[in-house]
Design a protein around this nucleic acid. Sequence first.
DNA 1: CTGCAGTAC
DNA 2: GTACTGCAG
Length: 268
Amino acid sequence: MKRKTLYTIAAVLVLVGVFGYELVLNDDASAEVIQQGRTAKPKTNTYFLPTSTTGQIVYHDGYTLSYSEANEQAEWVAYELKRSDLSTTNFKRPYFEIDEAVETGAAHWRNYKNSGYDRGHLCPAADRKYSQQAHDETFLTSNVSPQLHNFNAGIWNSLEQKVRYWANTYNGVYVVTGGVLKGNLKSIGTEKVSVPNQFFKIVIDYNSGNPKMIAFLMPHENSNLPLYTFVVSVDSIETLTGIDFFPGLEDGIESSLEASSDHKAWSF
DNA sequence: CTGCAGTAC
DNA sequence: GTACTGCAG
């Protein structure tokens, strides 16, 4: 066998290994994971939606976002990731499109071209693989932020995979993701898309006993440190961004969960 | 998985 | 602008 063929086989095995790790190690639900699609479109659960500091919330079938026109990107993207959403289907990657639902005009993908930055998904394509429509819907420019490739494909990707692991382990989670759009930020493209210096991701397990939250704040650079290194309290992200993340929660529960930066309840 | 870019129409 | 293909972490 030729060396190139061996490399190809090795690469395939690595990829299968990665997905297999996500889906097999975790469980019992491989049958559900390959489920045949949903019976109904996901409904936006406003109960878990953050506030908008920009006044422009946009609802899509697979996720909801708050758009910051000043920064030409979402200040947050929120969605529910059910265990049954997980799938190994491989959809072809479509082209990015301008989100026509953004009334102030979402950025054009051309801002990112040759910018040195990835169009980094906020709601990952891999989290919306229960249908082609849901998958393709993540390729709107309102759902991306400029991210360094090493960061996006590195520790940020690891965090996204961890979230899918938790969705499986805890039978579904809610996720809120965004860049910190504060301070003097570098920008790219003719529309001046801001480049965040930090990204956050907040996850809620609402379905496996006592509700629990975990929040991550990462500098915009790759790292080899363990994911839990970046755990912070939701409160600290609220202070940083001005966003109130879970106004729908009962105040007592909200305050206690959001104050915690303890990750011991979460399986890493 | 996360992506970009060259080439051709 | 879109499609196909190859490449990188």
